[in-house]
Computed example of a mutant assay.
Amino acid sequence: MRCFLSKIQTCIVILLTVFTHNSFAKSDVSPKVLASIKPLALISNEITQGVTEADVLLNKTASPHDYVLKPSDMVKLKQADLVIWVGPVLEHFLNNTLTDASNSLALSAQPSIEFQHFTHEGQISIGDFEDGDGDLNPHIWLGPDQALQAATVIANRLSQIDPQHKEQYQTNLVKFKLNLQHTVDSIQQQLASVRDQGYFVFHDGYDYFENKFGLDNLGYFTVDPERKPGAKTVAKIHQALLSHKAVCVFSEPQFTPAIVTTVIQGTPAKHGEVDPLGSDIKIEPGAYFNFLTSVATGFKSCLQQG
């Protein structure tokens, strides 16, 4: 008898937990939306306008490439109704926590998002690459086409778990598409005069943006920012700079290796900086489009000096 009552109590606890976790679907409570990194939070926030504000897990100085979860992060992940992340290919630190979680939305698992694979032909780089997801390019937030696909996935998932705000999410998605097209048109004009200027980047993370806007990336130091570039790679880049094949070498706020400063010494190349995570972009309406523009500005500000 005591065993039977214990089972009933357990079932009641489970039902209460499920009801509490999904209570926003039947009340005025808004869902808690958490994104792993700032750019995904910026995209998500465009979709949640008028309902809730998307939060971000990593602070502005952190990189998803080498992040370690804190106890406070675990609390945020468990309390969120929807956690949006690229997937195991980028946020390795979330694998154990989110792989089978019901509140997880891994964008890399969505067939409607057109992920690219790293193409190493013609690039100056050294490294080992794995089959499957190992060569998947996770930086989809830098590609306008992929950003729209991600926004669509996010809007549809939110419409499912929070049907009372479905109309708002879908309306925001339409606005996102219109604002994105306007931003793309503006950036095309902004970068038109520097498309023939060659450059190198610290890590190979800009393909989506470069392919969309026709920039002339000559190569990179490393695919993974945690890996130091080999001496052969550095020597080839230095020689390319000496021969005036590139006018800029770009680093990132999250990774400012001394090797970048060293490799441009004695060459006419300039040192530029591009922030692929939008560290200083405030999460507010229109911020994702400001982020894309800031990336374009980072490229042009150095390349136009060539």
Rank of each mutant, 00 (worst) to 15 (best):
A246V: 11
E226F: 03
Q239E: 10
K236E: 08
P229L: 01
K236V: 06
P225L: 07
G230M: 01
D224T: 04
S251R: 08
A235W: 02
A231R: 14
H238W: 03
H244F: 02
A231P: 03
V247H: 04
G230E: 01
G230I: 05
V234T: 07
C248D: 00
S243K: 15
K232Y: 00
C248I: 06
K228L: 08
P225D: 03
V234S: 08
S251H: 05
A246N: 02
H244M: 12
K228Q: 12
E226K: 10
Q254H: 09
K232A: 15
E252C: 08
P253V: 09
Q239T: 15
S251L: 05
R227L: 08
V249T: 06
F250Y: 13
E226L: 07
H244Y: 05
K232F: 08
V249M: 01
F250V: 09
P225I: 07
I237M: 06
L242I: 14
P229G: 04
E252Q: 09
K245R: 15
K228Y: 13
P253E: 07
L242K: 13
A231N: 11
P253H: 02
K245A: 05
P253I: 02
A231E: 12
V247T: 10
I237L: 04
L242P: 04
V249W: 00
D224E: 11
R227F: 02
K228R: 11
K245V: 06
E252A: 13
G230N: 05
R227K: 14
A231H: 10
T233M: 00
A235E: 15
V249A: 11
H244E: 14
V234N: 01
F250W: 12
L241W: 03
P225H: 00
A231T: 15
A246R: 02
A231G: 05
H238S: 14
K236F: 00
L241S: 09
A240H: 09
T233S: 00
S243T: 15
K236L: 12
S251N: 12
K228C: 03
S251G: 10
Q254E: 12
R227D: 13
Q239F: 02
L242N: 14
V247I: 10
I237V: 10
A240V: 11
S251C: 04
A235T: 15
I237W: 03
P229W: 00
C248A: 11
P229S: 06
K232W: 05
V234I: 12
A246H: 08
C248T: 09
S251K: 10
R227A: 06
V247M: 02
D224M: 06
V234H: 02
Q239V: 15
E252L: 13
P229R: 00
P253T: 06
E252V: 05
I237A: 05
L242H: 14
S251Q: 13
A235N: 15
G230P: 02
P229V: 06
P225E: 08
C248G: 03
A231Y: 12
R227Q: 12
P253N: 05
D224Q: 06
L242A: 12
R227S: 04
F250C: 10
T233N: 04
P229N: 06
F250Q: 05
A235D: 13
Q254N: 13
E252W: 03
V247Q: 05
D224N: 12
Q239I: 15
